[in-house]
Design a binder for these strands. Structure first.
Length: 103
DNA sequence: CATTTGACTTGTG
DNA sequence: CCACAAGCCAAAT
């Protein structure tokens, strides 16, 4: 079976170590899909809320979550990240500290 | 096949 | 820091 782009993205996301985060653009790039950050977001948008993949480790390039503050998804993701020992500053993650740039 | 859409990114002011 | 615009590209309609 031919691996779809979606599956490559899954693989990259699974390879993100706990306690680290990655941006959409970076995930896309590592998946061999440069400039397809939006595609990554669309793939994630189809994930069931209880999906086993660590989608919460993927945030945007500003170090913020791509949801409205206070929304269900925002809160869920924030809690998940905090569970990974990732600290928030004014609803933002310090990318200098937590960004995973590959192996 | 044309148009719209979207969990994005970067630049400008 | 916030708002807006343009660039980008795959999937959905």
């Amino acid at each position: 079976m031919t691996p779809t782009n979606r599956e490559r993205v899954w693989q990259v996301i699974h390879s993100i170590p706990a306690g680290k985060v990655c941006t959409y653009g970076r995930v896309a790039e590592m998946a061999g899909l440069p400039r397809q950050a939006r595609a990554v977001g669309r793939y994630l948008s189809e994930l069931p809320k209880d999906s086993k993949i660590p989608w919460f480790r993927v945030i945007n390039s500003q170090g913020k979550l791509s949801f409205e503050v206070g929304s269900d998804r925002f809160v869920t993701q924030k809690l998940k990240l905090q569970d990974e020992n990732i600290a928030f500053s004014n609803n933002k993650v310090n990318l200098k500290t937590y960004l995973w740039q590959g192996e």
